[in-house]
């Protein structure tokens, strides 16, 4: 039996649009991944604590409200503080090109924009944790 992949999918901030997050949760589940879904309005601290307790390899954040910069920075900062910076963070949402560069610079592993295929995102994550 190959090692389990666990991913945490969460919506940080106040944004309530969860179509993308839930579609991706389905896609990961169907590809054999254990998906911990924590739903809407999660604070960065809740997300990071959950990721640590659940020992996930990847955190998938979904943000469509434009608050991605602040929220991603917070999540990464907390991961560092809690010595869990090895947990990979990927982000999905409507995020301008310029911000994508900055997010990657600070440690976000990938940004999935509109039109991303589920299979590409799943593949990326599986490669990431290999």
């Amino acid at each position: 039996m190959s090692k389990k992949i666990r991913i945490l999918i969460a919506k940080p901030g106040l944004d309530g649009h969860d179509r993308g997050a839930k579609v991706m949760a389905n896609a990961f589940r169907d590809s054999g991944v254990e998906v911990i879904y924590t739903g809407l309005r999660q604070t960065p601290l809740q997300i990071v604590n959950a990721a640590i307790q659940e020992d996930v390899l990847v955190i998938g954040l979904s943000v469509l409200s434009g608050a991605h910069m602040h929220l991603c920075k917070e999540v990464l900062k907390l991961l560092k503080e809690k010595k869990a910076f090895d947990i990979n963070v990927v982000v999905g949402g409507i995020i301008p090109e310029k911000d994508i560069k900055e997010l990657k610079r600070i440690g976000i592993k990938s940004v999935f924009g509109p039109g991303t295929f589920m299979k590409d995102a799943v593949e990326f994550v599986k490669k990431l944790v290999k």
Partner: peptide, 17 residues
């Protein structure tokens, strides 16, 4: 979103939004 959810702009949960 803070306005839609009943939070003032100075509430910590509104940060970034």
């Amino acid at each position: 979103l803070p306005t839609q959810l009943g939070y003032d702009s100075d509430n910590p949960v509104a940060k970034g939004e």
